[in-house]
Design a protein around this nucleic acid. Structure first.
Length: 830
RNA sequence: GCGGCGGUGGCGGAAUGGUAGACGCGGAGGCCUCAAAAGCCUCUGUCCGAAAGGGCGUGUGGGUUCGACUCCCACCCGCCGCACCA
């Protein structure tokens, strides 16, 4: 038997070339027409998509993991007879390319193109089964033309608007940021401390969709932690809006509260320093100077300092009062930085008896602290329930004869109903979610298709003039305004409405806009007349399986859902959710730490692929552990997987040379049956494991099958070995496509990717005899062979007859017999 | 503080309430070889024991059960998200 050396560098390019030449993974939008390489049979459409890569430098190991997962799913579904859409593109606008340009002078278009071709090369060398006919990059005018078109749709519907607001500004990247891009007061990208600036910017009205974004999470098959993160981010709170009137000025100040039941305990009123009325309230009063000083100080404070809950509660009186609507009391007004302008109405009623923060402020400023909720029947083991602030439930006290004595949760509803009747408030829902700020003062992004006309104001660029192309510029350095502003020839334009002089918008869009709809474009990527044909979307959308890193749990995944709903409302789509199922893959670390250039612990997929081949790299990354968990890279582990693939190849090549009628060993029947059983067991196991993303145990099952074949190699018939190994290759194909195509062809002469997924023979999954576990009081004492047909009585008899069971019974009384047919007998003895 | 996820050999990890530790790595011994590499074979949770066998063992403490890594309660630790959100 000749054994051949496993040489992935010879095998892999050969299959890649064949698949490329045959356009094996292209799929048509016409359900009647088969994609060149796809199987006939069912016309079931299946859309599997990995999050599109940002092309910077070379792909890293995280990309390999993501696409190894996606490709396994794609192949598995193809072989289940589905028409699988598995496309690829690039999220190619963005800051890193622009920062690179500032440093080196290389145009972002050039560095991006270089990186894209490097990604293309590697994806091909990994053998990922992509429909390349649908490929695009988001910086191409043929794509961003439609990004602009979507912006205009949103603008037309009032969902894109311009507003002056206090916005987050990154001093290093010299641009504003969305709320979602600020992490702990720092820029998500570069880590610089974020400042606040008052600027007029473009926003998308995602808050209109807060309720639906929250509610529809129920409809989708996403990991619980991602849903939770989105729920937290949306931050829905139920409560009431209550009006506090400042009689002196005749102004109503609504506040949002989740605790209207504590209204009778409101002893003061606090406004955020940014509240537009603060200075007006103190104008020309003795308090004016102190308030001005305080507000100025608060505004210059860093987000980090201000956000610190441990900090001393500061604030100054405004010298005014408002009326507590439930009891007519005049309560003093303050300005304090613990109240945030961006949440609720920017003003609060303060209930120091039942809110920790208000309590701290009241103590610091010597304000009345009133108990209005009693802790339930004085159950004060440690006395804590009786101290204030008390945030728990209980009956109302010191409130009003109508409410005193009633449990606070019931009183809450009654008080809100009363407010409503009196016109002093109503129940209300508040969200933490803010509108999405999409303006960026940067060059390398999609231009916003808007012009500013002296007479017409804000004018959208007409659809037939799209795309508004990004002009070439020389100087990419940010100067606090968009580098595009320097392109005077481009900026100066005619008003589309009145043909008068006008200027173009010079900010570009947040790159998350680009990636909020790309999955739609794949469905109809070549369409030059429209962003998509509805029929094309009907074919594929929503995405059946989306795959990506958990770092996009909020940003990208929330924005894409919002786009989907907004476009559906505008009649462009007929579904509400873009991604029916989501899988988030874990990080790949080295020695427990995140890989990074600065740490010098980066494992490059290219070097692994060169040394071991793509099949080894892909199998290893899936074998190392559950793919949704973080995995630590181990060079020894890679060796182990490589050895396994080599053993499969060598054994298969030896068997391939055998004639099937070659005489088998003396125990051939036994060995053959064992191998056949193991084969069908593996088919069953891998099929199940693929459906639950348990790739590690699926690969382990094929290893077990190979171990069984190796062990029984001398005894079993060549025919059986040929069958077992070809099925093994067939099962492993989604993970190691090149090797398995090779092995399958060697053994069967057929193309494995055109074969249907193997079916396990139920008859061979069941066994005639099995090892019966014999327990006494739940402890395993012996094991004996039992027939599958044996009755409970027979099984008990077998068990009591087992030598070690007898030794342990030793005169004791059996009080109970538990029989689990096919598994065990447990004797309960005394 | 609130919410989510997790805690199993030397390591990565397996286990629809039914043999804990599959599979792989690492380690030990052996075969092959002039030698090495590659490959192959055996052993490998821990303690007692020559062995047979037995004790212990899935973060901690309880509970349910004939039987618990798995279910319930309380707690400890770790990771992630949100957080002065009214």
């Amino acid at each position: 038997m000749a054994e051949q050396r496993y040489d992935p560098n010879e095998i892999e390019p050969r299959w890649q070339e064949l698949w490329a030449n045959e356009r094996a993974w292209e799929v048509s939008n016409d359900p009647g027409e088969q994609g060149t390489g796809t199987r006939g049979g069912s016309h079931d459409a299946y859309y599997v998509l990995e999050m599109l890569p940002y092309p910077s430098g070379e792909p890293h190991i995280g990309h390999l993991k993501c696409y190894a997962v996606g490709d396994a799913i794609a192949h598995f579904n193809r072989r289940l007879g589905r028409r699988v859409l598995h496309p690829m593109g690039y999220d190619s606008f963005g800051l890193p390319a622009e920062n690179h340009a500032i440093k080196t002078g290389v145009h972002p278009r050039d560095s991006t193109a270089a990186s894209i071709s490097s990604f293309q090369r590697q994806f091909r060398s990994w053998g990922i089964s992509i429909d390349w006919s649908r490929e695009f990059a988001t910086h191409e005018p043929r794509y961003y033309r439609w990004t602009q078109w979507i912006f205009l749709q949103l603008f037309g519907a009032g969902l894109a608007y311009r507003k002056e607001a206090a916005v987050k500004w990154c001093p290093k990247d010299q641009t504003v940021l969305a709320n979602e891009q600020v992490v702990d007061g720092h820029c998500e990208r570069c880590g610089a401390l974020v400042e606040v600036r008052q600027l007029e910017q473009w926003f998308l009205r995602i808050t209109d969709y807060a309720e639906r974004l929250l509610g529809d999470l129920e409809e989708i098959d996403w990991p619980e932690h991602v849903k939770t993160m989105q729920r937290n981010w949306i931050g829905r709170s139920e409560g009431a809006e209550v009006i506090f009137r400042c009689e002196e000025l005749g102004v109503d100040y609504p506040v949002f509260t989740t605790r209207p039941d504590t209204l009778f305990g409101a002893t003061f009123f606090v406004m955020a320093p940014e509240h537009p009325d603060v200075l007006r309230l103190v104008a020309d009063t003795e308090h004016e100077q102190a308030v001005r000083d305080y507000v100025n100080h608060a505004l210059t404070e860093s987000n980090e300092d201000r956000g610190n809950a441990e900090k001393q509660k500061t604030g100054v009186p405004l010298g005014r009062t408002v009326t507590n609507p439930v009891n007519g009391e005049q309560i003093p007004m303050y300005v304090a930085d613990y109240v945030l302008m961006e949440y609720g109405t920017g003003a609060i009623m303060a209930v120091p008896g039942h809110d920790e923060r208000d309590h701290a402020f009241a103590q610091a400023h010597d304000l009345e602290i009133r108990r209005v909720i009693e802790a339930p029947n004085g159950s004060s083991e440690d006395g804590e329930e009786n101290t204030l602030p008390y945030a728990g439930d209980g009956p109302l006290v010191n409130s009003h004869p109508d409410f005193d004595g009633i449990n606070n949760r019931q009183a809450l509803a009654k008080i809100v109903a009363w407010l409503d009747r009196e016109g002093k408030g109503h129940s209300s829902v508040n969200y933490r979610l803010r509108d999405w700020l999409i303006s960026r003062q940067r060059y390398w992004g999609c231009p916003i298709p808007i012009v500013y006309c002296e007479s017409c104001g804000i004018v959208p660029v007409p659809e037939d003039q799209l795309p508004v192309e990004l002009p070439d510029i020389e100087d990419f350095t940010p100067k606090g305004r968009s580098p595009l502003a320097a392109a005077e020839d481009w900026v100066r334009t005619k008003c589309p409405s009145c043909a008068g002089p006008a200027r173009r918008e010079t900010d570009t869009m947040d790159t998350f806009v680009d990636s909020s709809w790309y999955f739609l474009r794949y469905c109809d990527a070549a369409n030059e007349q429209a962003a998509w044909e509805e029929e094309a979307l009907r074919q594929w959308m929503p995405v059946d399986q989306y795959i990506g890193g958990v770092e996009h749990a909020i940003l990208h995944l929330m924005y894409a859902r919002f786009f989907c709903k907004a476009l559906a409302d505008l009649g462009h789509l007929d579904f509400q959710e873009p991604f029916s199922a989501l899988f988030t893959q874990g990080m790949v670390t080295k020695d427990g730490a995140k890989m990074s250039k600065s740490k010098g612990n980066v494992v490059s997929p290219a070097s692994i692929t060169e040394r071991y081949g793509a099949d080894t790299a892909r199998c290893y990354i899936l074998f190392v552990g559950p793919p949704d968990q973080d995995a630590d890279w181990s060079d020894d582990g890679v060796e182990g997987v490589h050895r396994f693939l080599g053993r499969l190849y060598r054994l298969a090549s030896a068997i391939a040379e055998h004639e099937d009628d070659q005489p088998a060993g003396p125990d051939a029947q036994d060995a053959d049956l064992q191998i056949q059983r193991k084969t069908h067991w593996a088919i069953d196991k891998v099929s199940h494991d693929l459906r639950r993303f348990a790739f590690n145990t699926a690969i382990a099952a094929v290893m077990e099958l190979l171990n069984e074949c190796s062990r029984l190699r001398e005894q079993a018939s060549a025919e059986t070995l040929r069958f077992a190994l070809s099925q093994g290759a067939s099962l492993l194909f989604p993970f190691a496509p090149h090797l398995c195509a090779e092995v399958y062809e060697m053994l069967s002469g057929k193309r494995v990717w055109e074969e249907p997924w193997p079916q396990a023979d139920q008859g061979l999954l069941e066994r005639e005899t099995y090892e019966l576990v014999c327990q006494i009081n739940g402890k395993v004492r012996d094991r004996v062979m039992a027939s599958a047909e044996a009755s409970s009585q027979e099984l008990v008899a077998l068990c009591t007859a087992a030598p070690n069971v007898r030794a342990h019974l030793d005169g004791k009384e059996i009080v109970k017999e538990i029989v689990v047919a096919g598994k065990l007998v447990n004797l309960v003895v005394r």
